[in-house]
Structure formats: C-alpha cells, structure tokens
Amino acid sequence: MPLPLILARSKTSVLPTKTLQVNGFVCKDPMAVNADDFFKAAKLDQPRDTTKSKVGSNVTLINVMQLPGLNTLGISLARIDYAPLGQNPPHTHPRATEILTVLEGTLYVGFVTSNQADRSNKLFAKVLNKGDVFVFPQGLIHFQFNPVHDKPTVALAALSSQNPGAITIANAVFGSKPPISDDVLAKAFQVQKGTIDWLQAQFWENNHY
C-alpha cells in the first residue's frame, strides 16, 4: 500500500471511517489528518531514569499509541537505557522482529531458538559495542544486559510492527493476575511449590514505561 491507511481513503470511500480498525486502532478520518499525527517531540536524545527500575533499564517505546500516523505502516521505535549492570530481561515481541543498535556503551545480548527437533533450544549471543547491530527474530525470547559496572548503555531498537507488544517472561509466568496454579508451575519448572510461591510473591514490574 503506497500510503498509510490513515490517508488512503477518499471522501467517497464505502468504508465506515468511524468503525474501521487496524490492529485494534481506529483509522482516522482522512479529512481530519494533519502533520501532528506524524510527529512527536519524544526527546529521544535525552537520558531516561533507570533508578526506579528493579532490573536497571528503561524502555521508551514510540508506537502507534504515541504516534497515530504509524497505523498500518508496520514500524515502531524504542530507546533503551541501561544502568550499569542493568538489563532488559528475557521477553518476546509477538508481532515484531527487532533490530537493535548500540549508541553508547556495551551490551551482552542474545535470543533462544524455538523448540528444535532434537528438543534443544539454542542460544545465539554476542557482546555488542558502540555502533554494533543485532537482530532478534519475531516471537523468540531475547534479552540485553549491560555487563559494565560503572557506565550506562544506550541502544536504539527498530521493530517491524506499529504495535509490537512485549511479553516479559518472568512477569507473565510468576506475576499473572490471578496467579497460575503453583501445582502447574512447580511441575513445569521441576521445583518445589514453596519456590514457586516465593517467586509469585515478588513484585514483577514493567520496565516498558
């Protein structure tokens, strides 16, 4: 489609502009579209606060919820700030592949393959320095970790969806509301139920502000 759907329909379109949705977002009446739909003063050049995060990172996502003009275009962007020894913990993007570039600092990154025929899950990991690029395929569990004790790291990620979604593994498994039965999780992880109860009692926070 040469133009985003936000602009593509004419006055004579038979599509009901007030009800048509793409990925859950209503397409704006093309006669009401203006430059602000494609602009956001996001200040992505400025550092984010990582001190409030238990995992030591802060993800600033620019997706269709912040920038309406992205609707139907299949892209989004994120700035990720990592404190010294901070991480973006294991998570997946169910609707997007991610390509990440380190702007400052160092990162240890990786992703794990889906279940293989030999019942293995292979880890692909690298240490990235300033200017390096790494790709995380859609839907696979991946992570980033700043291994440096005294310097923060900053990265910029592009994602192949206007609404990529994020499922942080620990949050989803141990922090669901209501919680998953500890009988289920104890057997799945091959540990005692007391261990599961302790994990479920922790505060699992979202670093995607």
Rank of each mutant, 00 (worst) to 15 (best):
N163V: 03
F143M: 05
D132H: 10
V173L: 09
Y209C: 11
L61W: 01
D197R: 15
T101C: 11
P2E: 15
Q162L: 03
T12F: 04
H93K: 11
V173E: 02
D197V: 15
L123G: 01
R119M: 11
G175N: 09
N115T: 14
P89D: 07
A83C: 12
N163L: 12
V148E: 11
K43E: 14
D37I: 03
T153P: 05
N34C: 07
A41Q: 14
T168S: 12
V148C: 09
Q46L: 15
S176W: 09
S53M: 08
V173N: 12
N207S: 14
P16F: 00
G69N: 02
P4N: 12
V102Q: 11
L20F: 12
I99L: 09
H149R: 13
A117H: 12
F38W: 11
D183M: 02
E104I: 10
V127D: 03
Q190H: 15
P178W: 12
Y108P: 03
E98C: 01
G139K: 05
I180K: 03
A32H: 10
Q162S: 12
A96G: 10
K54D: 15
Q144E: 04
N206E: 15
L185C: 03
I169W: 02
Q162G: 06
R48G: 13
A32W: 04
A125Q: 02
N34Q: 06
P90R: 08
R9E: 12
T51Q: 15
V64S: 02
A32Y: 06
G86I: 05
T97Q: 00
H208T: 15
G110Q: 04
A157V: 05
L85N: 15
P152L: 00
A78E: 02
T60Q: 07
H142N: 09
S160R: 10
R95W: 04
I99F: 00
V133R: 04
S114D: 14
N129H: 13
F25V: 14
G69F: 11
L159E: 07
S114E: 10
K126R: 13
M65N: 13
D49G: 08
I75R: 05
Y209I: 09
M31I: 07
L100Q: 08
D37M: 05
S76W: 03
T101E: 00
A117N: 12
A188S: 14
P16V: 00
K126I: 01
R9M: 08
S114H: 09
A83N: 10
T153F: 00
H208R: 13
V127M: 13
G165D: 05
T168E: 08
A117D: 04
P178H: 05
T101L: 12
A166H: 06
T51R: 07
L159M: 13
S53P: 14
P147M: 07
G69T: 14
V112R: 01
W204S: 07
S161R: 06
C27S: 15
F143S: 01
R119D: 10
F38L: 02
V191W: 09
A125I: 01
D183C: 06
V55N: 13
G110S: 02
F39W: 11
V26T: 12
K122E: 03
T51W: 06
P178G: 06
I6Y: 08
Q202N: 12
W198M: 15
R119F: 14
V135L: 10
V154R: 15
W198I: 15
L159F: 09
Q192Y: 07
L159Q: 04
N63K: 06
